[in-house]
Computed example of a mutant assay.
Amino acid sequence: MTEHTVRLSVRTDKPRMRVTGTLCVLAALLVVAFFVSMNTGYIRLSPLDVIRTLAGAGTGQQELILYHFRLPRIIMSIFIGIGFAISGCILQGVSRNALADPGILGINAGASLMVILFTFAYPTNEDVPVFMVPLLALAGGGLAAGLTHALSIRRHEGLSPVRLVLSGIAVAAGLDAAMIILTVKLSPERYQYVLEWMSGSIWGTSWPFVLALLPWLVVLLPMVYRKSNVLNVLGLGDEMAIGLGAKLDRERKALMVLAVGLSCACVAVGANISFAGLIAPHIARRLVGSNHRYQLAAAGLTGALLLLVADTIGRCILQPSEVPTGIVVAVMGAPYFLYLLAKSDS
């Protein structure tokens, strides 16, 4: 099925004006969080200092702090949040399973293992070629996704959503175990690096890493949005989708490739922060409904806001030390899922 042959307009279960207002509120909250994050840190910059520095009238120290340390990290957090959230939204739509996300399906673990193996080949005093890292992460995540997909296919029945999640958990567990085994003979410096990576610490906090991730988002996000109608059709069930002319196998593979690409590019520069890909689509679905034309945008904004707030909290809660962003995201997301569990049982 292509958008030129079969188009299905799935009406959102929320009024359009309300959906538009919700997206505007999310965007406004993201802007507020952006400015708050610029003001927050071990060396605090007041809002006036930030405005003065952005206008080119700041001191050398203020320009160093804002332009070389905070802004790259803030922008990276936003990009990573968008990438993980959209990837999780795709995977949940393809599998029709609310628990699907890049972390649970083993994609992040495969990308992480490949990147860690690659960085081990470089001495600690040499910089990793950042533009190669997303390609290597894509290779590792792609292999993990292919293995998960192969294990979840039933003969004569096709893709099983339940088997997809179970296979992904098994693949992720095996790859995580392989990363742990690698730490046995590591130096303390390398061990600390792997530990921070597995905890979800954003490590690509300079402009080269931002430039390495940006092309992936620029290319893949428009392609995902073009597939929003396909995700709506797949959500109707296999029989209905086939009746509407959808080629299930081809569309699912194409969407899986997009999800893997987004997730692996984010893992390459932001470590394994997988929980954002699980919680952001849930929040987006409750805010704007099940129409992926709106849900994808809401998930991206929610994921960006979630990662930015989590990274800001992680930088400030135990100054001068930092708490990995992945841990903060997990702490923030756990109460929400406990709320969903309690509501489903009530």
Rank of each mutant, 00 (worst) to 15 (best):
A246P: 08
V162M: 06
A111F: 11
A172N: 11
P208E: 07
N97L: 14
L213F: 14
G204V: 05
N291E: 08
Y193V: 01
F209Q: 15
G168P: 02
A254Y: 03
A268Y: 06
L220S: 07
G277Y: 01
P161N: 08
G303R: 02
K343F: 06
P215S: 08
F118P: 01
I51F: 15
A144Y: 02
L117I: 05
T40I: 00
E63L: 06
S346T: 15
D176T: 06
Y193L: 08
F84L: 15
G245H: 11
R293H: 13
N232G: 00
L234E: 04
V233D: 03
L213W: 07
P215D: 09
V6G: 03
L45R: 02
V329S: 07
L301V: 07
L214H: 04
L307W: 08
L175T: 01
G303L: 01
A144D: 01
L244K: 02
V130G: 07
L255V: 06
S199A: 13
H4Y: 12
L186K: 01
P335G: 14
F79Q: 13
P215Y: 07
A297R: 02
E157L: 14
S37M: 02
R285G: 08
S37P: 00
G245W: 09
L136W: 05
R96S: 13
N272F: 08
L113N: 08
P72Y: 04
A276Y: 10
I116T: 13
P215I: 10
A298V: 00
I75Y: 05
L214E: 06
R293G: 13
G83N: 01
S199T: 12
G289K: 01
L186Q: 11
E196S: 07
R11I: 02
I116W: 13
R18L: 06
L66T: 05
L117T: 01
R226G: 15
G141W: 11
P215K: 13
S9G: 09
L236W: 03
I78N: 06
A170P: 01
A330C: 15
S160P: 07
S9W: 09
S344R: 14
T124I: 12
G237W: 09
M332R: 08
T183F: 03
L105I: 08
V328G: 11
N108K: 05
T205I: 11
P324D: 05
L30Y: 02
E196I: 01
T302L: 10
G237Q: 06
L236H: 05
Y42Q: 15
A284R: 08
L258E: 09
T124Q: 10
D49P: 10
A342T: 09
S187Y: 00
V184G: 05
V32P: 10
F209E: 12
A121Q: 03
T40S: 04
G106L: 14
V171E: 05
V218L: 14
M179C: 07
M17I: 09
G106K: 13
L99P: 00
L305T: 00
E157S: 15
A280I: 04
S321H: 07
L182R: 02
A298M: 00
